[in-house]
Amino acid sequence: MKPGMTISCIGHVGALVWGLVAISAQPLNSPAVESLPVSFISEKDFTQLTQGAKNAPQLKIPDLKPLADKVDTPKAVDQLAPKIADKPAITTDSSKPKPEPKADPKPDPKQADKADKPKTPDYKPDQIADLLKKDAAKTPAKPDDSTPQKTAQNSPKFDANQVAELLDKREPQRQIAAAETLNSLANLGAASGAPGAQLSQSEIDALRARLSQCWSPPPGVDATTKIHVSLRVLLKPDGSLAREPVLVEASASALGPALAESAERALMLCQPFTMLRREHYDQWKDLQLDFDPHELLGG
């Protein structure tokens, strides 16, 4: 026993010392995790979130940051809905002075007189020339009339801008312009939004009770029958059927058609469904009803 105990003690002390040295140098560092606040809202709350209120306090948005870099310097907007393709009225009358800067010095009567008198007979077509000859005496008295003629002679024969305008057959159009910034404000609610717009459990239960009242199960169907039929029902605001119920889905069973027929009959008999409130019409105008004998008879 002596040597064994000695050897065993020495071995264990050695193992412990090794463990102290080898295992101690590994700290367990767990980074602190930031907590994330989470709140639960019901479906009803979510519906009401989208409603919007007219008397809600106006939010002050410090500044709306542009989503895209501006390529051009912003221009003053003088129209509420700016035209994307702002097409100016096309003047086919070539006599009208096109470039403004050139038109400016023209009103000078002296220059007009000098230029008109020698040139008009040479360049104008015969008819105009004749007319001009008739009016030759009047010309000095009417400097305004001569001005367009003169500019027509001075303007170049081919103006690329004018041609492009003439070729542009587009109508001046009014399109929704993409705003420079995205509106971060929530919208003011759906047009048909109503407070608590949701088919309540009591309405669902009332509808179910009414249906199970009206419904007479076809022979061979009782509460234990594993079968169900799903119908799509379109309703009018007064609670009556807008049209015949449509079979959406039925169990693969010989009793299926009979059950579907009896369900349709029950819907026809029970209308109008006045327990559905009119203010929730959006919620029940298009219903999918499941007919399950287990629920309607047994429940």
Partner: peptide, 17 residues
Amino acid sequence: LLVCSVWVWAIAIDKTL
């Protein structure tokens, strides 16, 4: 358990011998 381990090994060495 440490004492048990020491004893077990002591017995084992003795029995082997």
